[in-house]
């Protein structure tokens, strides 16, 4: 039986409103926190090999959804499955299949790219010699010189750090890659290189990608389908072409931004600047 790479059904995630969280995690102590919905009733299927983009302003719930898939949060309602494995009950199996790249490159900044990548390789059970060889190959493919790869990451540019983050995801050969605003804050050239690498990952390794972004052009060019997320909900999910066509005949030649504005009534530009 073939399972979709990712499937979610009725997923909800609530958080305590700021300042209303009890001091101790003991419900019988009395004061209950006020709940705010970060993700509300999300359902979708992502077939293997597809790139699904999620567009939405800051605070729309994109990163929360990615964290739920990445087993870093537990859903309050609904379920998520990765290749048929439930992210809560079968988290160990799911973790072997996924990797995540986020906007902030989560590294030990004093360690070099090679040291951080060796750490990642060993965490994923890779043998030392194989890991060293693959790290060399991947860094070379990404155009990171050997001497740069031995400098502390804090001394590398933001674009270079993000390339190393992509290399780390590539190293562990994930079948489902979670990209949480991977190009935010990158210069146009670095952005283009990261996008090319994502395309290569899909083409060479048949990797399925869930990509969150603020960037309409990125979503339009990279994604097979795009979901527009607002206030924790998907307000649309379709191919970029069909989403744009949905505004016709009133708006001929519409862009994804027009679709976004029509569906959410929110400006995305201001949110991008705040990011």
């Amino acid at each position: 039986m073939s399972f979709p790479a990712l499937e979610a059904q009725g997923v909800c995630k609530y958080f305590s409103a700021d300042g209303s969280r009890p001091l101790l995690p003991l419900p019988w102590l009395g004061r209950q926190a006020k709940k705010v919905a970060a993700v509300e009733d999300i359902s979708f299927r992502l077939p293997r090999g597809e790139i699904l983009g999620i567009l939405g302003p800051n605070g729309s719930g994109k990163s929360t959804l990615v964290r739920l898939v990445a087993t870093l949060l537990l859903p309050d309602k609904g379920w998520i499955r990765v290749f048929g494995h439930d992210v809560v009950r079968e988290a160990a199996a799911v973790k072997k299949m996924i990797n995540r790249v986020s906007a902030e490159a989560a590294f030990f900044k004093r360690l070099s790219a090679v040291e951080n990548l060796m750490y990642a390789a060993r965490l994923y059970g890779m043998e030392g010699r194989t890991a060293r060889r693959r790290i060399g190959e991947i860094l070379e493919r990404l155009g990171i010189a050997a001497e740069k790869a031995r400098e502390p990451l804090e001394e590398l540019s933001r674009g270079m750090q993000q390339k190393v983050a992509i290399a780390r995801a590539f190293l562990t050969s994930p079948v489902l890659l979670l990209l949480d605003e991977p190009t935010t804050g990158l210069d146009p050239r670095s952005k283009r290189e990261v996008q090319d690498f994502i395309r290569e990952l899909r083409a060479v390794h048949d990797t399925t990608v869930l990509l969150t972004t603020h960037d309409m052009a990125e979503a339009d060019s990279l994604c097979d389908r795009v979901a527009i997320m607002c206030d924790g909900r998907f307000v649309a999910l379709d191919t970029p072409a069909r989403l744009k066509a949905s505004l016709e005949p009133t708006h001929v030649g519409a862009s994804l931004e027009d679709v976004f504005l029509a569906l959410t009534g929110k400006e995305l530009q201001a949110e991008e600047e705040a990011a």
């Binding site: 964290r67 990445a70 087993t71 870093l72 160990a92 973790k95 072997k96 996924i98 990797n99 995540r100 986020s102 902030e104 989560a106 590294f107 030990f108 900044k109 990642a120 965490l123 994923y124 059970g125």
Partner: peptide, 14 residues
């Protein structure tokens, strides 16, 4: 402090 906690907790390590 290093900002790596989510990466470590997402890895397939008990």
């Amino acid at each position: 402090w290093e900002g790596t906690i989510e990466y470590t907790f997402m890895a397939p390590v008990s």
